[in-house]
Amino acid sequence: MKVKIKSWIAVASWKWDVPEDEVCGICRVQFDGTCPNCRFPGDDCALLVGKCGHSFHMHCLLDWINTESSRGLCPMCRQKFEYVEQ
């Protein structure tokens, strides 16, 4: 019997490369979900992984870093927050 493939549908799944049950230290939502202001996970609601080892939704962290009183510190360990280039 000969089979001719006429078309196919490709499906892929993706995950952030962080431990599964890890949550954002600011909004406490799992990283597979979005920050509270976004509707869809993905590049539009990216993660920032800090050199100090603490990760956040980019939007959550920027809201903090942009306040004067944050003085650029990580909310968890209060070291200077610098993110790892992905």
Binding site: G25, I26, W64, S69, S70, R71, L73, R78
Partner: peptide, 20 residues
């Protein structure tokens, strides 16, 4: 207290408010 307030209070930044 916000970490930026009253620098002279003697409170350590590590004991202040943070969004965590």
């Amino acid at each position: 207290h916000q970490p930026g307030d009253d620098e002279m209070s003697g409170e350590l930044a590590s004991e202040r408010w943070s969004p965590a």
